[in-house]
Amino acid sequence: MPLILDHVSQVYNPDTETPVRALDDVSLVLPEGQFIGIIGHTGSGKSTLVQHLNGLMMPTEGNVYYNGKDIADKDFNKKELRKHVGLVFQYPEHQLFETDVFADVCFGPKNMGLTKKEAELAAFDALRKVDFPNDLYYASVFELSGGQKRRAAIAGVLAMKPDFLVLDEPTAGLDPVGRYEILDMVSALHKESGMTIILVSHSMEDVAKYVERVIVMDRGKVAYDDTPREVFTHGEELEAMGLGIPESTRIARMLKDKGINVDPDVLTVTEAADSIYAAVTGNNK
């Protein structure tokens, strides 16, 4: 069931002299099965946008449709929507509250009206999917490392078996290895379950490597909505939005400008190294 945003705007303080258009006429179709990145710097509206996807915020103008129904309708079941569109916020500490990890992951499915048994099965399944260490299932949530907390928080939402999984800055505050571990896990989740994953990030490097579609937010508007390669052709515009392009891409472009025949659309370190090597040795021949 796709999520459709139809000319959605969100205006704070509409009656004052300084209304803030946190979202400005955003129209998007988010079909099932995609791996989408939403990028924008702080204040670009990306966090506001994702809160519209599960009805935590309602648009002040325009409509959000899930499964063909307007989520603003009186008889629309928002709790049901939140089951289908799982949203994990940036700070796992904001969501973990039970005495142990397992009980915490059960919270969501229990709220969905599952029996204790069903909820526990769903929790086990979710913890397994996020590769949570077996020996820590009954550990206190305060003893976990940053990456483990993140996994527990994601499992807590995954246990509701959503069709959409929205992750708001899931790698903030993690070290590089922890970052890639989480992103690899999310990517595997996408491949195995086929659920739509929406990754909110301010890091181009993270997004470029994993997603198939990038939505760039700038001052409340959708600036670009395309494949990463296509979006990164707008290097200068992205720079102006405070975003920039992946460093590998930037280096490839710099070399290209110097007349070295490097593929200017590379995204990762490995791609860049391969292309540079081919170009340089090719030139030598």
Binding site: P176, E247, I251, V269, A273, Y277
Partner: peptide, 20 residues
């Protein structure tokens, strides 16, 4: 050591490994 090696440094390393 789980450190975030800067992109240019990593690309240079990869290229060196290839023999540049």
């Amino acid at each position: 050591l789980r450190l975030d090696v800067p992109g240019p440094t990593r690309i240079a390393w990869e290229l060196k490994k290839k023999g540049l």
